[in-house]
Amino acid sequence: MHVVYSLGDRIFRRVVTAGAVTSLLVLALIGLFLFARGVEIFRDMGPKFITGTNWTAGSGDGIIPAEFSIGPMLAGTIVTSLIALFFAVPLSIAGALYMEFFAPAKIKSTLVSMLDLAAAIPSLFFGLWGIQVFSSMGERWAALTSHYLGWFPLFNNELGIFGRSPFIAGLVLAAMIVPIITSVSREVYSRTPRELVDSCYALGGTRWGAIRAVVLPFGRSGVVGGAMLGLGRALGETVAVYLLLNLVFKYNFNILESEGGNIASLIATKFGEATPYELKALLAAGFVLFLLTLSVNMAATAVVQRTAKAQP
């Protein structure tokens, strides 16, 4: 159908389109500027920027050359986020199922609003709560894990100091991303066709029977999308990790040991006293983080939007 718009309409549509395109532009500009400022580092360091092990600003006079590689921090980012997902996903599924199918109708709406509020808790509070309230508990769990499972390299801890480890940071990140995963999952579960659930009951099925046969398969891709949104948050988290982890620049896969970091906390730590060249390296690191989270988020968005479309 060909529509002829009046002059007023054409102006209106232009203005609105320009406004909408601004958001596309901002996203493109973020990538472009970070890349443009960091490209010198990518050229100088080559693939070692990702795979190397050192972050040294050098002595400035060329005697000790500057060397920048985000390898250990990239690994730390992934390790803490995976720990977070490992704990957050099952808990969120339980939370979402409880809210949708088990909670009494009276407290359900309260829980939903509290969940919305929980999703808006600034990440700074999770950092604050993590170091001040949670870490003593987390350290005890870490000590127990190391005591019984220490033979497994992942849980090895030779020093016997358990604070400020990737494990604890990962647990706090898990607490941080539970609200978003729970609310996306609950949303999808609530759209399960009522008649399918009811026919399960009519056939003599139990509540769990209906959940397992209908609700979980129906909501699977939604949960995956929610988990990926949570992952995106955990990957890019700055202050909570900054407050909860000792930034030590080495590959650390012993998750109970007190050292680690992620790219975002590296940027926050080094930013203040960075040399101009190091600053470029930080921008390059920011670019990598941007690409990483953007790809995770785009995948999540694609999954969630596809699920939304599949619903009647």
Binding site: V21, S23, G236, A264, I267, V296, T301
Partner: peptide
């Protein structure tokens, strides 16, 4: 308006909500 870019705009806005806050600062 629902112009040609509707899908792209919606997708980008959704993805943009995942830009890490420190990257916005940078």
């Amino acid at each position: 308006v629902r112009g040609r870019l509707t899908k792209v705009v919606r997708f980008v806005i959704q993805s943009m909500s995942g830009v890490p806050s420190i990257v916005a600062g940078l």
